[in-house]
């Protein structure tokens, strides 16, 4: 009895935590029965808190404290110069809700999130499914698709700004060679966001690609063997085995991708500074500018909290949708 309890978990040890180990709600961790130690003994209490103390200290200082002080700051007229430090109630929020620039930047962020999430998920899935068809030289494909993810945003922005150059850029050169008119890319208000999305897809698709590849390799081979014996072809297997099995992974990837896209700032700020004419300015840049170029920390904090509220709303909605679907 003891030995069987020992060996079963041990076999799972060398394997790293796989995505499917992350618990879905309602599944309790598989605890081995607790030993005699009574819950909350004095020794356990002080030892436990001693172990978590360093993390909790940093957590309180650099996460909880700024979160609370930011909320307070949003109720003041605080300025970066230190002046005008008075409590003004919800005036900042009232101003923000009436500020067309804030709405426009929120709109830009949502637009970017929408048009970037779809290709970032679909292309990653397609690439992973293709590479997983037993192609030779697996490492080569991973290397090509994943390596851009290791670049800093600034490097990506330099690469793409150069390729988008209207006269000297590679993209317009290619367009000219296939007989198409040149595009103004980052200088064209209707094109700039798409240009940024193209750069972003190149930069981060590899990350979702890796997650999908890991999930694909976790699908038991027996499913495919059984399907082949039943005469199911490749497409049939894709739609009745692969895609359904990837459901939970896709849900997680979409949630994480939406959250990541909502935070967009780096590549937009670096490639267009939010231009032309504010056409690409995301809300995070508006927060940054209200605080550091407008010197209005209180107002900037208020917009931060409006943005936070939006993220909470979207997260709750996503959780609700995924839970409903899996239930």
């Amino acid at each position: 009895m003891t030995t069987s309890r020992l060996t079963a978990p041990q076999r799972r040890l060398p394997r790293a935590v796989l995505p499917r180990d992350i618990p879905r709600r309602g599944t309790a961790p598989r605890d081995i029965p607790r030993t005699a130690a009574p819950r909350g003994s004095f020794r356990d209490n002080w030892q436990g808190w001693a172990f978590v103390a360093p993390f909790v200290a940093f957590f309180l200082m650099f996460l909880v404290w700024p979160l609370l002080s930011g909320a307070l700051m949003s109720l003041t007229g605080k300025s970066l110069t230190g002046a005008n430090d008075g409590f003004i109630g919800l005036a900042n929020y009232a101003e923000a809700f009436a500020d067309p620039d804030m709405w426009r930047s929120l709109g830009n962020t949502l637009y970017f999130t929408l048009i970037s999430t779809v290709p970032l998920v679909v292309i990653a899935l397609a690439l992973a499914a293709l590479v997983n068809m037993g192609l030779p030289a697996q490492w080569l494909w991973r290397l090509s698709f994943f390596s851009p993810f290791l670049l800093a945003s600034t490097v990506v922005s330099l690469f793409f700004s150069w390729m988008y150059n209207p006269q000297l850029g590679l993209f317009n050169d290619i367009l000219a060679k296939i007989g198409l008119p040149p595009v103004a890319w980052l200088n064209d208000p209707s094109m700039a966001m798409w240009a940024i999305v193209i750069a972003t897809v190149w930069w981060t698709t590899g990350f979702n690609f890796l997650l999908y590849l890991a999930a694909l390799q976790n699908i038991p081979q027996q499913h495919y063997e059984a399907a082949s014996l039943d005469g199911a072809g490749g497409w049939r297997q894709l739609f009745s085995i692969t895609l359904p099995q990837l459901g939970p992974t896709t849900a997680m990837i979409v949630i994480l991708q939406v959250l990541a896209s909502l935070k967009v700032f780096d590549q937009i700020y670096q490639m267009t500074s939010g231009g032309p004419g504010g056409a690409t300015r995301p809300v995070v840049q508006y927060i940054f500018e209200a605080g550091f170029t407008g010197y209005r920390l209180g107002y900037s904090a208020a917009i931060s909290y409006i943005f936070f509220g939006l993220i909470l709303l979207i997260s709750v909605a996503q959780l609700f949708i995924t839970r409903k679907r899996s239930a």
Binding site: L67, M73, A301, I311
Partner: peptide, 11 residues
Amino acid sequence: IIPPPVLIIPL
């Protein structure tokens, strides 16, 4: 769930 950009001003 807390997005880091929300904290930049107070930080």
